[in-house]
Simulated assay, not measured.
Amino acid sequence: MGHHLNRAKAHFGTDTRGLLEGGRYALLHTRSLEFDELRPYVPGDDVRDIDWKASARSGHVLIKRFVSEKHHKILLVADAGRNMSSLTPNGETKRDVAAHILGAFGLVTLGRADQIGMVYGDARGCVNIRQRRGETHIENMLHRFYAHTLAEPGVSDIVSQLDYVATHYRHSMLIVVVSDEPEVDDRLDDAVTRLRSRHDVLWAMVPDMPAVGDHDGYDVGSGSLVLRGAALGPRVVAAYRRAEQERAHRLDEYLTARAIPYATIGASTQIRPRLVELTEVFARAG
């Protein structure tokens, strides 16, 4: 396994069973082509699927679970602009956390033969990597994304990537967006509305370290100095914190109203539990 996938595996692990089941583009568990596993019977199951021999051996009624040959088609949509050079609340670079999240979704697809591609970029434009299968393909995607974030990236603008996908991807699929926390405005709403009319969307957001802290900082987008909290005074700090709470509330209301499951992941150690929660919401939505 390559460098980036190994780093993702260190934080996400190797157990991907049950993730991304459900939703409109999931594996279909029906009387179909290929035996998958046994599971306990629940009311409403087709009695024709009961495995009587296995049930007799175990003392419990067990159902044969089948999978069809239909798999997910997944498109990762990632911000590779300057925002990924800033720090998360725990001090990691956002590019590292984002790469580990992207790698985690890649690991999920490996055991399921899902097709996965990526669109990444910044305000200058998009790079489109077509959907394919396999470890080498996923590692190459992660390498290209990470290299872009290091090589003088442009200003971040995830709406540019969302607009590209909404314009160029017509066939229904699962869209996984990995970015910082977007500003809710008309541009975002237009792109999201177009995407949701055709695709399922999940959103993993990597937040910034608070701009007002114990040390001076700088804005990675503009390069301007951001003074420490002590220099700004308590009234300015309090106003900043209120504005951040209001912004987070608007974003939560926006994504919830549009039925977009999302997770805020501020550290690589949070990737496993937050993505498990995110995919469970996705499965229930199906």
Rank of each mutant, 00 (worst) to 15 (best):
R124N: 14
I271D: 07
T14A: 15
Y41V: 05
S179D: 09
H249G: 04
K70N: 06
H11E: 12
D214W: 02
V236F: 10
G117E: 03
L251D: 08
Y218H: 14
V155Q: 13
H215E: 09
L20F: 02
Y41F: 11
V127Y: 13
T149G: 05
L275D: 09
G91L: 08
D185P: 14
P182Y: 07
Q161W: 11
E277D: 15
D185Q: 12
T88S: 10
Y25N: 10
H199W: 11
F12R: 07
G91F: 02
H215N: 08
Y25P: 07
I101H: 01
A123N: 05
N90V: 15
N140P: 03
H143L: 06
R144S: 14
A191L: 04
V220F: 00
G23V: 12
A239E: 14
A204N: 07
G117W: 11
P273S: 14
P261L: 13
V237A: 15
S172Y: 06
G134R: 06
D96E: 10
A10C: 02
R31P: 01
D157I: 05
M209T: 03
G221K: 13
K73D: 13
H143M: 12
L87E: 00
T136V: 12
A211L: 09
M205R: 05
H100W: 03
Y120C: 10
A239L: 12
I116Q: 09
S58D: 14
D252T: 10
D200V: 07
R241F: 11
R95L: 03
D208T: 09
Y262I: 00
A243C: 03
D79E: 10
S85E: 05
V184L: 07
T14S: 14
H143F: 09
S160D: 11
T149V: 13
A26H: 07
I50E: 01
V42R: 14
T16P: 08
G23Y: 06
P43L: 04
L107C: 01
H72W: 15
L232T: 02
T269M: 06
R17A: 11
A248P: 11
Q115H: 09
V159I: 07
S222Y: 01
D122P: 01
C126H: 08
D163S: 15
R196S: 04
D186A: 15
G125Y: 10
H199Q: 09
L232H: 04
L5P: 00
M1R: 09
T149C: 03
D96Y: 11
G106F: 06
G44L: 04
I116T: 00
W52K: 13
G117R: 05
R242H: 06
Y240P: 05
R7W: 05
F66R: 08
R124C: 12
A104L: 03
L251S: 10
